[in-house]
Design a protein around this nucleic acid. Structure first.
Length: 220
DNA sequence: CGCCAGGCCGTGT
DNA sequence: ACACGGCATGGC
């Protein structure tokens, strides 16, 4: 009993986080100028490269439509054309309009008030909006509403599988994996505010690592 | 040229 | 509950 009892080894997840942080540095996500832009980005990046998302965001900005009123007042067919570069533009255009309609119906377009709802209620409202699934909802919860919710994406699954941290990471359902990660990290980061910060950086770092891994494989 | 990107949803078993 | 196919553009 004379070794390491007072200072346990860093658990695998925390060790991975530290390693990614050392390798890539702080990411300071989300790359958006406002909560609403963040939400639009979350919709547009569904199964889509960020480069293509930026092309659509540029279109919205150029026509002064990257706002609640802008999305609401633009005819669907016109919005679709602006979103075209981001792919799946019909689903994304109607999804964004549905989100804005929900805001208007329930909160008089007051996004800050919507984002101030209790976490569980907010998550359920988000999931009820067409085009918002588990990952998009959790991205909004973490990056726009600043809640300690861990975002699970395909990069997360591949990395946790490759690192042998969760060998079934590619196949377990979303909620199981999310709750596993959250409870494991909660032990090391009991303060919710700290946890929100760590989840924020961790997800961004995982994406950075995933992109780098992909481009290095293509060159090889 | 083919593959895939920070998923979601409707349908069929 | 889970598997599968469709949705769409742009870069490598």
């Amino acid at each position: 009993m004379n070794r390491k009892t007072a200072e346990p080894e860093a658990p695998p997840l925390q060790a991975l986080y530290q390693r990614l942080l050392a390798e890539h540095g702080p990411q300071h996500w989300w790359p958006a100028e406002s909560p609403f832009e963040m939400i639009v980005g979350a919709y547009l990046t569904q199964n889509t490269s960020w480069r293509n998302v930026e092309l659509a965001l540029i279109n919205l900005r150029a026509s002064n439509k990257l706002s609640i009123a802008g999305i609401r007042d633009t005819p669907l067919s016109e919005l679709e054309q602006l979103l075209r570069p981001s792919g799946f533009f019909r689903q994304k255009a109607s999804g964004l309009k549905a989100f804005v309609s929900m805001l208007e119906a329930e909160h008089a377009t007051d996004l800050a008030m919507f984002l101030a709802l209790p976490t569980d209620a907010l998550r359920n409202r988000l999931l009820a909006v067409p085009g918002v699934g588990l990952e998009t909802a959790d991205s909004i919860l973490l990056y726009a509403a600043r809640r300690p919710i861990f975002v699970v994406d395909l990069y997360t699954r591949r990395l946790l599988q490759a690192e042998s941290i969760y060998p079934d990471a590619l196949t377990v359902d979303y909620e199981t994996l999310r709750l596993r990660i959250e409870s494991a990290l909660s032990l090391f980061y009991p303060d919710p505010a700290v946890r929100t910060y760590v989840f924020n950086e961790f997800h961004a770092l995982i994406v950075a690592e995933g992109k780098q891994f992909r481009s290095s494989r293509i060159r090889a």
